[in-house]
């Protein structure tokens, strides 16, 4: 297996001020004995609420943090012991922290990567050309990074992380704050990267669409524990979550009646909201409504990831 995580935990000691001079020491298990493996070429979504332990896991996988316990290997390397050797084989993109040089043209950051990672000239040029083409960076190479939009900068950051041909790419919130078009471009690029080059991808995100469009597998962490590891559809079943179909009709009508699990949860003039299980495709439902009702427009709202996880938890507690 390319990534092996076996019973890994990370315990932080937190000191909290409880009085003028009094301090309380408390141990926090940011990651509590998690295990998983990722095969070469897999694309895995890693999700969970804020503070669940996602970043801590990524930091241990990249060698930034040393685990408090358990066994961890990436490409056969123990990240915490051989951080710099591992660095040649991984790429990391931190969504909210650019590693590009603010005041310099974009290309300068790439030239630094070229030399810092000692990338052979031919390889560098080949990889740069491919990234420039697929991420549409052509006109931006001579532009100072501070003048780039958020979406352009993210694409620039992704390219910077790939010039040295990493075998695995870690992305921490790669689409956060991006507009719809930029998000689509980033996703398309990642899909091609994974498909054409076989690069293993592990991404954390708050955007369920990232997962839906990219990952065949999703891992959910909460309170430092792995609460789900499997296909996305299974997550919806496990969470019992529902998607919402928003239907605009020609005129105000009584609540739509369709068979199965779909039901109207709200109406407002000609607009109606239908909830249906997230694991089910929307196509059948849509065609049924289109056949029976004067349909003007419709859209599907994805379930909120936090809500899915919250429900998973509630179910577990009641089970």
């Amino acid at each position: 297996m390319f990534i092996e995580v076996d019973g890994v935990e990370k315990v932080f000691e937190v000191r909290r001020r409880t009085g003028f001079l009094k301090r309380e020491r408390r141990q926090v298990r940011a990651v509590d004995s998690i295990s998983f493996t990722v095969a070469r070429g897999e694309m895995v979504g890693y999700i969970g609420p804020n503070g669940a332990g996602k970043s801590t896991t990524i930091k241990m996988l990249t060698g930034i943090l040393t685990p408090s316990g358990g066994r961890l290997r990436v490409a056969g390397i123990d990240p915490s012991r051989e951080r710099r050797r591992l660095a040649h084989r991984i790429g990391v993109v931190f969504g909210q922290r650019t590693t590009l040089w603010w005041d310099l043209p974009l290309i300068d950051s790439y030239r630094l990567m070229h030399r810092m990672y000692r990338i052979p000239d031919g390889r560098y040029r080949e990889n740069l050309d491919r990234c420039v083409e697929l991420l549409e960076l052509g006109g931006l190479l001579d532009v100072p990074v501070r003048q780039l939009s958020l979406g352009q900068r993210m694409r620039g950051d992704i390219a910077a992380a790939l010039l040295h041909d990493p075998e695995v790419l870690y992305l921490d919130e790669p689409t956060i704050g991006l507009d719809v078009i930029s998000k689509a471009k980033v996703r398309e690029f990642l899909r091609e990267l994974n498909h054409d080059r076989g690069t293993t991808v592990l991404l954390t995100t708050h955007d369920l669409q990232d997962i839906e469009q990219l990952c065949s597998r999703v891992m959910v962490i909460d309170h430092g524990r792995m609460v789900y590891d499997g296909p996305l559809a299974g997550l919806h079943e496990a969470g019992g979550s529902e998607r919402i179909l928003v239907v605009d009709l020609e005129r105000e009508l009584p609540p739509i009646e369709v068979g199965g699990a779909a039901r109207v949860v709200r109406t407002e003039g000609p607009r109606q909201w239908l909830a249906f299980p997230a694991g089910e495709p929307a196509a059948g439902l849509v065609s049924q409504i289109a056949a029976d009702y004067p349909l003007v427009d419709l859209s599907v709202r994805e379930p909120d990831i936090e809500a899915v996880i919250a429900r998973m938890y509630a179910d577990k507690a009641s089970a």
Partner: peptide, 14 residues
């Protein structure tokens, strides 16, 4: 404090 120290730790140089 701003977290950018982490980005230095994933580079292959001291």
């Amino acid at each position: 404090r701003d977290g950018s120290f982490d980005t230095l730790l994933v580079r292959p140089v001291p």
